[in-house]
Design a protein around this nucleic acid. Structure first.
Lengths: 203, 203
DNA sequence: ACTATAACTTAACAGCGTTAAGGCTTATTG
DNA sequence: CAATAAGCCTTAACGCTGTTAAGTTATAGT
């Protein structure tokens, strides 16, 4: 039925519109001020309407997390295709992580502040297709190539990937959430961390 | 006046009792379930009573953060006095950071999730005496000694301190908040990170 | 024309942090 | 001793929050 398809399509369109407005609200007013009711007001519908398109706030946040992860994934693939030097690709990937966070602090906060376990159990996470999962594997590939090319010490690929991925996250979150601390220059901190860390795992 | 002093002492005692109950509530039920009203119920007072002893929720959280920082500070001093090898002291300090976080995830969440800027502006943070500030300087000393002893490359002490302190934080927060991800073994990750990182800054 | 369905809203529940106002008990003063 | 002041605590309320149940309204299909 053509009508039904149209209805479905409209439903998906509307879902996207809500998502776009939510993202705008986050960027304009910050994570702290975001609420379902404010979002409803922004899109000129009653709060309950949103619940016809998203299971709840967590579901909406999860959808935005996936957007963020998709952006990251895209950039990661780009770096990998452009940069032939594997070590430099990894370096750039890590630096991009930090750069992205500071350019989009609210996106990053969404990704981080979303309550735990929105992705389900560990097994569910690995089974279910998700941008978050895919971008992990994309980053892992970059690390893998580095080891394969003999640039980094051979070791458990997942351990190394997780160490390299989370360390910059620490710098980011602390700087974002403890802004009252007199941090050193962002770029200096980022390059020092990344270069130091990679040097530590060089062959 | 003796009576006045006694009253003041009682006031401080009560403040401590509230704080203790708050900590208990955090540990038993987790950060997410904590609220002023639930705390009030636990101590068998009306919610407003808490406001006679704390400015508000943030103030209460800040007090708990300070407790956490004090614990960290004590341990840090202990390590420094026991361990004569500066490099090993730094290594242990960093490993302790991770260990503490996983042993006291709720404490750590409080410290982290507390809204930004509760410590005021950057200048205020450095001026005002606080356990958070002191423990930073304590950690900084450990790093300083390492550089002084020629164990680490000479470089900006604050940059290095901040890099070494925040990197483990990334591992911790990600593992605590993204528990649906199939992380590798905690200890392996912790030692890999710390040893790799320190190796990267060795002379 | 009647009915079913889809889209949306109103009203409400239960919770939150916080504040203003008032009550009650104890201490201080005229 | 009676009147007043101070300290401690509570009740009630404001304005938020996420979420749900029930009801309305308009449109499509028979």
């Amino acid at each position: 039925m053509g009508a039904k398809e149209k209805r479905v399509k409209n439903k998906e369109e509307f879902r996207r519109e809500i998502l776009n407005s939510a993202r705008e609200l986050f960027i304009d007013d910050g994570y702290e001020k975001f609420s379902m009711r404010r979002l409803a007001e922004k899109i000129d519908y009653s709060p309950t309407t949103i619940y016809l398109y998203f299971k709840g706030k967590d579901d909406l946040l999860l959808a935005i997390c996936e957007e963020v992860a998709e952006q990251f994934l895209t950039r990661m693939s780009h770096i990998r295709s452009v940069q032939s030097n594997p070590y430099e690709a990894l370096r750039q990937a890590m630096l991009y992580l930090v750069e992205f966070a500071f350019d989009n602090p609210n996106h990053y906060k969404i990704f981080f502040l979303t309550r735990p376990n929105v992705y389900g159990t560990q097994e569910e996470f690995m089974k279910r297709e998700s941008m978050a999962r895919n971008s992990y594997f994309e980053f892992r590939k970059v690390v893998q190539v580095c080891i394969g090319a003999g640039k980094l010490r051979p070791m458990d690929i997942d351990v190394l990937t997780q160490v390299l991925a989370t360390a910059p996250h620490g710098l980011i979150t602390m700087m974002l959430y403890r802004s009252s601390f007199p941090w050193a220059d962002r770029r200096v901190l980022a390059t020092t961390l990344v270069d130091g860390l990679l040097r530590g795992f060089r062959k």
